[in-house]
Each structure stands twice: as structure tokens, then as C-alpha cells.
């Protein structure tokens, strides 16, 4: 057991009942990065959905912008223990995107332009639970937070909400993503503290 360090609290704030166990509230918006911030030109960006038999649908920036947009206000929970309440985003519901593809798949992998991936069961992406967002708090999404477009699936730990998102692939079987292959939980429910794959 580790010794306590007298008076050390870390950068943590108050706890509320909207904050899952083991999390603390932050007012800022910490930037997490597992690599350099990619420069993504909206002129070259596209979003592609590929179903389990390889059929694909793509939207370029202009076509994506014409899709119906929503402005969800949600709480977000990062596995590095910060949570942020009432964040407002602007983007397209994943329901809208999936309406264009036929699928009987159970699982999805979200892909980023830099090769990052995250796996999510498909049923967690439908019925208004997930978005592809291009705006944050009334402004275009900053590159450090995943702009021009990131994924948003706020009921799971925030690593599932891939930055610099480029598409979704649909699969019959679960395929662990970047962090899920390295010890993080396949599902990642913050209220159940599903942070890690089980240990011993």
C-alpha cells in the first residue's frame, strides 16, 4: 500500500451526483493526445460508412453539411478521471448516417484519419445516442479537440469518441480498437467504472 502524501489532492474539484464514480469535475477542457495533431483539410475530408459486406456510403464536407444537424448538450467522462458537464455540440446523428446503409451487424469500429480506432456495439450508436460533430459551444470544433469532425458517444468513456473521425466500419464480431487492444475495456461504461480489461 502506498504512503499518503500529506495534503496532496491533485488537480481535482467537487463531486456531484452527475459525476460517475472515480471521476472529478473540470471546468477546462483537457487536451489528450496519443500523437501529433493531424491537419485535416475540410476540402479533403470525407466520412465513410462500410457495412459488414463491404458496401460503402461516403459524404464529403459539403454533402455532410447539408445533412440535418442537431445540437446535443451532454456530459462527458474521460477515463483519465475528468468529467465535464453540459457540453454543447453541433453535428449529425449517427442514425441519419446509418439510415443510408443496410446492415445486420452487431458491432462498429470508429476510425480516425491518423489510424486511431475504437470499438462500440452498434446498438450504442443508434436511437440518438451518438453523433459526428463539427461544432463545439457555438464555434467550429478546434483541431486539438478533434476538428474538423469528431465522434461523440457520451454515455461511454470519452476515448470512444474518436477525434479526427473519418468513418465507421460495421462487423459481425467485436474488434478491439486502439486502447481496447492495450488493456482498456471493450465497452467502457463510466457508471460501472469499466475502465480496464479484467486483470487477474
Amino acid at each position: 500500500m502506498s504512503a499518503l502524501t500529506p495534503g496532496f489532492r491533485g488537480g481535482r474539484r467537487t463531486v456531484s451526483d452527475r459525476v460517475p464514480p472515480g471521476q472529478y469535475l473540470t471546468e477546462g477542457f483537457p487536451v489528450l493526445s496519443a500523437g501529433p495533431t493531424p491537419v485535416v483539410d475540410t476540402g479533403e475530408w470525407s466520412f465513410t460508412v462500410v457495412n459488414e459486406v463491404g458496401e460503402r456510403v461516403s459524404w464529403d464536407w459539403a454533402a455532410f453539411s447539408r445533412l440535418p444537424h442537431e445540437s446535443p448538450t451532454v456530459d462527458i467522462h474521460c477515463v483519465t478521471r475528468w468529467s465535464k458537464l453540459d457540453t454543447t455540440w453541433r453535428g449529425v446523428s449517427v442514425d441519419t448516417l446509418l439510415a443510408e446503409v443496410a446492415t445486420a451487424a452487431d458491432f462498429a469500429v470508429v476510425h480516425s484519419v491518423d489510424g486511431y480506432t475504437a470499438n462500440v456495439p452498434l446498438q450504442d450508436l443508434t436511437d440518438g445516442q451518438a453523433w459526428v460533430v463539427t461544432g463545439y459551444e457555438g464555434a467550429p470544433l478546434a483541431a486539438e479537440h478533434g476538428g474538423p469532425a469528431r465522434f461523440l458517444v457520451p454515455h461511454l468513456y470519452f476515448w470512444k469518441s474518436a477525434k479526427w473521425v473519418s468513418g465507421i466500419t460495421l462487423h459481425d464480431e467485436d474488434q478491439p480498437g486502439f486502447w481496447e487492444r492495450a488493456g482498456y475495456h471493450d465497452y467502457g461504461d463510466p457508471w460501472l467504472e469499466q475502465r480496464y480489461q479484467s486483470g487477474w
Partner: peptide, 11 residues
């Protein structure tokens, strides 16, 4: 160097 808070949080 590792610091531990009274609730177990470590840095």
C-alpha cells in the same frame, strides 16, 4: 516520483 492523495488518487 509518485504522490498519493487520501482517496487513493495517484500522480
Amino acid at each position: 516520483i509518485r504522490l498519493t492523495a487520501d482517496d487513493g488518487y495517484q500522480a
